[in-house]
């Protein structure tokens, strides 16, 4: 039976991987125009709190509130982005890092709304809601041999996988379009891009806001998958963790962030004894990557090699 294969724990880890991939992509998209934003944990928090509060206080359907969370994060992104993008490089990184801290301080102190450091609990969960809907429709998970929690985790995972596929599709297509070329041009040579008629301010704000929307979206999903959030979920450590996804996996290519998020989520799960030293290892990884492979594990030459060997493999099987 299907039920025998589906370990809820594995399903949950897989769901976390999916959310982390979205976060990895949020930093990738901003990096693709050559800017490092360390504020994505803050945007994630804005998305999470917005969506959670809308469902708790106003009984808004999760689908609507998640989108609202992403939009609010994006609006804040525009507000922060326009002044910050007058800054380049490290200045932007620090300003956005500071922004993340301000958000966290507000989450802790605006107790009437956010319940302070304790955080919000009892957030409607995507899985449970879907289970309710299925039950109302007269469907019982046991009919297909699944326990309730298996069914719930499986549904959540499927939804997250679909979201990821859509998001990756979006970004891959964008990369190949006029907008993607403008991002890449700015990243490679800002002055030359400007001389070619690229409105660099517009495209920088655009890529920054896309990063904000995507991390806000990830945050909203996170809230409704966990059912519980607190300011600690969106701290500096989260910002660094998101950075690691891109830096370790490879910040030049979309597959880098995906690989980085997957690997970094799995590592502490697979190597249990490591999880205590997790952040120390993160730190060491950042130092070593910068010294030996600053472009990350996956880069363009590696992808080309993989493609070549795939083609060769096909030829081999024909012969």
């Amino acid at each position: 039976m299907l039920g025998d294969f589906l370990n809820p724990y594995y399903l949950q880890v897989a769901s976390f991987i999916m959310i982390n991939i979205i976060l990895g992509l949020s930093i990738y998209v901003t990096l693709s125009s050559g800017q490092l934003s360390l504020g994505n944990a803050g945007f994630m928090g804005i998305g999470a709190y917005t969506s959670a509060l809308l469902t708790i206080n106003y009984d808004m359907p999760i689908v609507v509130s998640v989108i609202a969370g992403a939009i609010v994060a994006g609006l804040v992104g525009i507000l922060i982005g326009i002044p910050s993008l007058r800054l380049t490089g490290v200045y932007l990184a620090i300003a956005t890092l500071g922004f993340g801290e301000v958000i966290r301080v507000f989450m802790i102190n605006w107790e009437s709304l956010t319940k302070g450091a304790v955080g919000l609990s009892g957030i409607p969960q995507i899985g449970r809601e879907l289970l309710k809907v299925s039950r109302d429709a007269g469907f019982n998970p046991l009919d297909i041999g699944l326990k309730n929690n298996q069914y719930v985790y499986l549904l959540v995972l499927i939804i997250l996988v679909i979201i990821n596929i859509l998001l990756i599709w979006f970004l891959v297509r964008q990369n190949k379009s006029r907008v993607g070329r403008a991002f890449a041009a700015i990243k490679m040579d800002e002055k030359a891009a400007e001389a070619m008629g690229v409105n660099i301010t517009y495209y920088k704000v655009l890529s920054f806001v896309q990063g904000a929307v995507i991390s806000g979206f990830a945050g909203a999903l996170f809230a409704h998958v966990m059912g519980y959030i607190s300011p600690a979920d969106f701290s500096y450590h989260r910002a660094v963790e998101i950075l690691i996804f891109a830096v370790f996996g490879g910040s030049e290519v979309i597959w880098g962030s995906i690989f980085g998020a997957t690997f970094m989520t799995l590592m502490p799960e697979v190597l249990r004894f490591i999880s205590e030293y997790r952040y120390m290892i993160y730190g060491a990884i950042l130092i070593l990557m910068m010294a030996f492979r600053p472009q990350g594990i996956i880069d363009v030459p590696l992808l080309q090699k993989l493609q070549l060997s795939k083609r060769r493999g096909k030829h081999g099987s024909k012969n």
Binding site: G283, A284, L286, M290
Partner: peptide, 16 residues
């Protein structure tokens, strides 16, 4: 951005 990221690495390492 590399030195920035590298020193973030040191900060995380030292904190933990």
């Amino acid at each position: 951005l590399a030195p920035l990221i590298s020193t973030i690495g040191v900060s995380i390492l030292l904190e933990n």
